[in-house]
């Protein structure tokens, strides 16, 4: 089996993997980072979104072997030095989650949205940018609010 080495949440990791192993399964099963979730089979729900080399991707639609040398950040790696990321804080402060299942992917996508669009984002843009993340609990209202607030906080 091929050996794949990458950096996950700042730590170097290396493992023999079956080439079929998707990044999400590598994270969940090999590294026991179970914060990244699987909610569909068709790359649409976004519960599995992680950052690879600074950009959001759906970890259910990427082979672990293809990510040799990649720098991966999962929801577990977002808080730094015991301090929550501003987007995590914003989700809690704005009740942007209920069952919590879509939340890790939502937060990772939200960070990516701000990285690409800056800290002043209007509601319409946030809603459009969330096309790849499905939530069944919140009706999106508080997620949108949380992302706007998180964006402001990320901007300083």
């Amino acid at each position: 089996m091929p050996v794949v080495s990458m950096t996950v949440n700042g730590k170097a990791v290396s493992a023999d993997v079956d080439p079929r192993t998707l990044l999400v399964h590598y994270l969940r099963e090999n590294l026991r980072l179970t914060g990244t979730h699987v909610g569909c089979d068709t790359s649409q729900c976004g519960a599995c979104v992680v950052m690879v080399n600074g950009a959001s991707i759906k970890s259910c639609t990427a082979l672990a072997v293809g990510l040799q040398g990649a720098d991966v950040t999962t929801i577990e790696g977002l808080a730094k030095d015991g301090k929550l990321h501003p987007m995590q804080e914003a989700f809690r402060e704005n009740h942007g989650l209920q069952c919590g299942f879509c939340t890790p992917g939502m937060i990772m996508s939200a960070v990516d949205i701000v990285n690409r669009n800056g800290s002043k984002i209007d509601e319409k843009t946030i809603r459009e940018e969330l096309e790849g993340n499905i939530c069944r609990c919140t009706g999106y209202h508080n997620i949108v609010k949380a992302i706007a607030a998180g964006a402001e906080a990320m901007g300083g």
Partner: peptide, 14 residues
């Protein structure tokens, strides 16, 4: 919320 926003939720598949 703390456990959910930090990826420490504990669902059956976990």
């Amino acid at each position: 919320d703390f456990r959910f926003i930090t990826g420490k939720g504990h669902y059956t598949d976990d």
